[in-house]
Amino acid sequence: MVEPLQARRFAQASGTQAKTDAVDARTLAAMGAALDLEPDMPADKNQHVLKQLQVALMALVKERIRLLNRMKTQNPALLKRQCKARLDQIKHQLAEVEEASLVLLRKSPKRVRAMDILCSIPGLGQVAAVAILVECPEIGTLGRKQAASLAYLAPTTRQSGQWSGRVKPVP
């Protein structure tokens, strides 16, 4: 990924003023060659389907919450019975969507490994691990240092201006 402003500044520095798709493509190619940029890996072919399943899962969860709240305030037995039937249907649909997501995730060895690591964290189940891998697909492809940096666990320098990490003694 290239920051749009950085790409525009590169184009201006190289004397390009026009802004068309063809010119942009040539400028980005020249920028990649000049700065020795590495292309990102293309998204997994199942990523779009996984995202759709995740959206459906979230919609079902919201529907379940809405129905549970509604059941608390309804008095007629008919409406309570209908809500209960719909809750049973949602429970079945949630299980189907979760299973479909797991089947797709298991098709990628890197994601299976990432899923196993995430599920080994106490309190983190398969559903949460799937959600993490769908929302942050790069999790399964990061190295140790990249993952530590992403989680803000890697050491970083905090030097700013004149400060160099040492506190001056008070006179």
Rank of each mutant, 00 (worst) to 15 (best):
L87P: 06
L5W: 09
I132G: 00
R66A: 15
A85F: 06
R111E: 02
L79N: 06
Y152I: 03
P76C: 03
R158K: 15
I90R: 04
V167A: 13
W163V: 10
V130C: 08
A77W: 00
Q52H: 12
R81V: 01
L142F: 01
D44G: 02
V97E: 00
A25L: 08
A129S: 15
L104E: 09
L68T: 05
V167N: 11
P137K: 06
F10V: 05
A30K: 12
N46W: 03
R81F: 02
V167G: 03
Q82H: 11
A59I: 04
Q47L: 03
N46L: 02
D24K: 02
C83P: 00
P122T: 05
Q146R: 02
K91Q: 15
T16H: 13
T73A: 12
I90C: 07
A77I: 02
R8L: 09
M31E: 11
I65M: 05
Q162D: 12
A11M: 14
R81Y: 02
V49A: 15
G140L: 04
L57I: 07
R64W: 01
Q89A: 13
L105T: 10
R81K: 13
L57Y: 14
L67C: 00
A129K: 13
G140P: 06
D21P: 05
R26H: 07
L102F: 05
R106V: 02
I90T: 06
D44E: 04
P155M: 10
A151W: 05
E38L: 13
P122H: 06
G165P: 11
A11D: 11
E38W: 08
I132Y: 01
K45P: 04
A13F: 12
A128V: 03
L94M: 13
Q12A: 15
E38P: 01
R106M: 07
E135N: 12
D36V: 09
C83F: 14
V49Q: 14
Q89Y: 10
A30I: 03
G140C: 06
A34R: 14
D24I: 04
R8I: 04
L67G: 01
A33V: 08
G161V: 01
K19C: 10
L28Q: 05
C136T: 07
R86K: 14
P42F: 00
E99T: 13
K168Y: 07
V130T: 13
K145D: 14
R111H: 12
L118D: 03
V130Q: 11
A148V: 01
D88T: 09
L104V: 09
A7K: 05
R111G: 00
A151H: 05
T157A: 11
A56R: 12
L28T: 01
L53A: 04
D40C: 11
V2D: 08
A148I: 01
A25N: 04
L67H: 02
A18H: 14
L118A: 03
L87H: 06
F10Y: 14
